[in-house]
Design a protein around this nucleic acid. Sequence first.
DNA 1: TCACATCCATAAGGACCGCTGATGAACCTT
DNA 2: AAGGTTCATCAGCGGTCCTTATGGATGTGA
Lengths: 301, 301
Amino acid sequence: MNLTLRQLRYFLALAEQGHFTRAAEMMHVTQPALSMQIRALEDEVGNPVVERTPSGVVLTPQGRALELHARRVMAAMAGLDQAMRQPGRGGRLMLGMIPTVAPYLLPEALPILRARDIGRDLHLREAQTDRLIEELSQGRLDAAVVATPPDSDELAAVPLFTDPFLLAGSQDRIARLGTLCPEPRDLDPGQLLLLDEGHCLGDQALEVCGLGRRSARLDLGAASLPTLCRLAAQGMGLTFLPRLAAHQECAAAPGLVTVAFPDPQPCREVLLLRRATTPAGGWFDDLAGILVQAAERVMAG
Amino acid sequence: MNLTLRQLRYFLALAEQGHFTRAAEMMHVTQPALSMQIRALEDEVGNPVVERTPSGVVLTPQGRALELHARRVMAAMAGLDQAMRQPGRGGRLMLGMIPTVAPYLLPEALPILRARDIGRDLHLREAQTDRLIEELSQGRLDAAVVATPPDSDELAAVPLFTDPFLLAGSQDRIARLGTLCPEPRDLDPGQLLLLDEGHCLGDQALEVCGLGRRSARLDLGAASLPTLCRLAAQGMGLTFLPRLAAHQECAAAPGLVTVAFPDPQPCREVLLLRRATTPAGGWFDDLAGILVQAAERVMAG
DNA sequence: TCACATCCATAAGGACCGCTGATGAACCTT
DNA sequence: AAGGTTCATCAGCGGTCCTTATGGATGTGA
């Protein structure tokens, strides 16, 4: 049994009109065309679906069953059509984000995404760069926000924004540095608090200081930026705080003070990645634009 | 946007296999055939639904939306197929029945109908012959049980069973008739209780007595056979009781006594009607067989 | 009662669709 | 660098589906 949508459409028209000729007009075809499709449908089904009476057409019991199910099929098709017509897309958008960006960018980004009908079914994955890139390559993600340029050429990146690093610590630690904030590489590596390995933020902080991870005082095992900030606020050391995170973390960790580095400020480039095969236009550019907008608000706010 | 089932099927195969060639094999077509259909689908949708990566195929967000909806469509089609494959039919069977048959035949018939999977969605209409015939002609009914041969040749009838009339009344009224039951036409018209006009049973009773309705003592306005039987049981007159109804009515109306007429017994022919255009075989003959079987049980029981 | 209209089925011809088989381009593997 | 993937493209062919034309059945009006 291999019915076609055309047969179902014609049949529903016939059921509605009760009349071959009128149903054919409704379908913008000639009456023989519709008759032949109905005939083909009945051949497939094995029984007549309508009785041809002199004064019109009557559904058989089986015809009524067919009508019921055919309407369901057409409803499903209508739903599909509508979903495809949505320019915003309708499918789940699988977005990855590194942990040093996600909690600061998302509160601003999500409302915009929803307003633009992109976040309707947004699926978020927070993970470190390596894992995000792997999942992106495998197609389990559609895009990812990272702060490290991809090495593989199967990924393409668009820059979102530049996120300067601030120096953060307790009031007295910062005061002890003097009135002028030092050059990054003048900092004492022994005072630096870093994130766990795997977080690009730690590596980047070391890089701007001209240091390797080996020379850092210790890996505190601090798994998250909020934790790190609380440690720094209690005077346990200094840390690099992305400006993106500054407002939220200063509010959350009383006693935390930040100072900007002198120009040229050290910074990280936040990027939006996609597979190179992903069509660039459309939702991807929309998403990038929204994230930029959200970042501006976070920085300004 | 005018997607075809073929496109959806191919697309689902592709989504499942993640591989054009394997999806094509799955669909028993060559790879170009599938590629072209996917291409056509993407043209309709307006965006790519899969990304072609070197190592296989990944759905785009829109592709995932399409997958979701396509599965719904295919599920609806599967439901339709299954419904059509049911030899029993799946549609509502619209059955009409006259009031002097329905309450007696149905208790036996319904279980059999259900067992044979015909009564799955049986729609019953109890009405007098004229109305049943009208609704049958208009296609609002598929079949009708009546006791009057149709005059129109747009209806066809198959005989179900013969239902003899019994004479029923109170103990003393029946006794007063003597040991032998009289010929129908020897009955005193003044003693006869009849159903309302419109019920064929009343007309038939008069007919076998060689009388017209005018000569009957009165129309009691008794709208139903149970009422009539209760009147008769209380000695208000005699009535014709179809054997089909005898057991039930005697049980329900204490004091009601029935006697059979001498041969040739007056009787009514109970028929199953269909539109002449309704295909005779299949469900219609099944239904007729079941009703005959049910009638045999009623008569025997 | 006969002509006519209406309705659906059927037949023949043509346009288009979709499949196959062959080929090509890009990429990965060895 | 060669060979084997992958998917895309093309030409040719067969089938599907449409249209126009026609036929048979039924109902209707003069």
